[in-house]
């Protein structure tokens, strides 16, 4: 494991994003009990790790995160960048009173946001596709993950008496 191969624009972008995203996270009025906030931060952190180490590395190796296939500190910071997105998704889900009818357009909207952010990450050399992977394949991942997150929130709401 190394800090980074070369400190250039992808590292600067990851650190800048980290500051901006967490500034927004702490600035937003709190909507959930702390254990729910932590739960969705953890979901946002662990799902990209599951995908990156399953299809983004090893045998399939569809993409490389940051400068090399080796594990870098910048990779860990990149995963911390993803963590608040599951929280933001649920935060606005509640704020906009999303229901069965609005769930599909809401999730599509977030899929578009995800695709734009991934394109920016690609431009900033945070992610490099390889072995035939293309940006549009990520639509499937976004739709599945966002749908799961929304449904999981509904389940938590039903099961958690502190809500």
């Amino acid at each position: 494991m190394m800090l980074w191969e070369e400190f250039d624009r992808n590292e600067i972008f990851v650190i800048a994003m980290l500051i901006i995203i967490y500034a927004i996270f702490f600035w937003m009025p709190k909507l959930f009990p702390r254990h729910i906030t932590l739960l969705f931060l953890l979901i946002g952190f662990s799902i990209p790790i599951l995908f990156d180490f399953t299809i983004g590395g090893g045998m399939l190796n569809f993409y490389q995160v940051n400068d090399s296939n080796a594990y870098e500190l910048t990779d860990v910071l990149t995963y911390f960048n993803f963590a608040p997105f599951a929280y933001f998704y649920i935060y606005f889900y509640v704020k906009f009173n999303i229901n069965k009818v609005t769930f599909i357009p809401y999730t599509f909207g977030w899929t578009v946001i995800g695709m734009v952010l991934e394109a920016v990450n690609k431009f900033m050399n945070v992610i490099h596709y390889q072995n035939g992977y293309e940006l549009y394949y990520s639509v499937i991942i976004f739709i599945v993950v966002l749908t799961f997150t929304g449904l999981f929130y509904e389940l938590v709401k039903k099961k958690d008496p502190t809500f």
Partner: peptide
């Protein structure tokens, strides 16, 4: 363990195991 506790323990173990 309730749903939230099970999920948190599962995800932390998953992240540790993968890494």
């Amino acid at each position: 363990m309730n749903l939230m506790e099970s999920t948190v323990v599962f995800l932390v173990t998953l992240v540790a195991s993968i890494n």
